[in-house]
Nucleic acid binder design. Sequence first.
DNA 1: AGGACGCCCTGTTCGC
DNA 2: TGCGAACAGGGCGTCC
Length: 261
Amino acid sequence: MPELPDVETFRRVLERHALHRAIAGFDLEAPRLLAGIDEAELRKNLVGHQFDSTHRHGKYLFAHLDHGPWLVLHFGMTGEPRPFGPDEAPPPYARFVLHFQDGGHLAYIDPRKLGEIGLTPDPQTFVREKGLGPDALGLDWPTFRALAQGARGMVKPWLMDQHHLAGIGNIYGDEILFQAGIHPRRKMEDLSEDELKRIHQAMQDTLGLAIGAHADPAQMPPHFLIPHRHKGGHCPKCHTPLAHTKIQGRTSWYCPRCQPP
DNA sequence: AGGACGCCCTGTTCGC
DNA sequence: TGCGAACAGGGCGTCC
């Protein structure tokens, strides 16, 4: 689930449900999620404090603590935050649950436990240490062109490499290339200026529309590839049966007619 | 360096 | 129908 539009949706959930509520404690069911910090240190930094703002960079979500540091959340392939009330049971796969002093809770659910929970002095430091590229949302054309300049190799892996751009994953990589009419195996060095521009435009349009749909496939515009991205699916533009291919271990779906090699 | 793979996990879907 | 294999929206490390 969690690519840029999903994480942006999660950020808004935190913005609405997690700010200005004193943290009474937490349960950590899956300590393997902790990255670069132990449970005791996390406890010391969270308990008795509260979040007062949020931030997102690529697929990483940050929540600022009132005493300085930021909680960092990454959702792996299956994670998401879910608030629940004082009298409700935690949702299934709640691996990390914050308890607020007002009686409410915020669960971090992650069936596959491939996410990450950590702390950082500030998002900029985190982004630098991780070597993340600029956030894909709102990235302007000159910056995008400069990044693409001199890039080599297939366009799909390039878009998905968080060191180039932060936020695009397998699903939105496919969606962007579909909207731009570019085959996922096309080489970066072979793309024309016009094709790069189409990718950049498709990226902005796709991310914006996906966020508008709260990253919910059921609410995506009719011309989106996402709802058709499965066996037996057809191109929403020309009705040609969709094709798929394995690129670096991930399945890429595309329309063989709209996205010629 | 690009690209292919394996691994970390676990639930769901596919295919014989 | 049943069961094991393959797959799933991420990221990292290794090898050629």
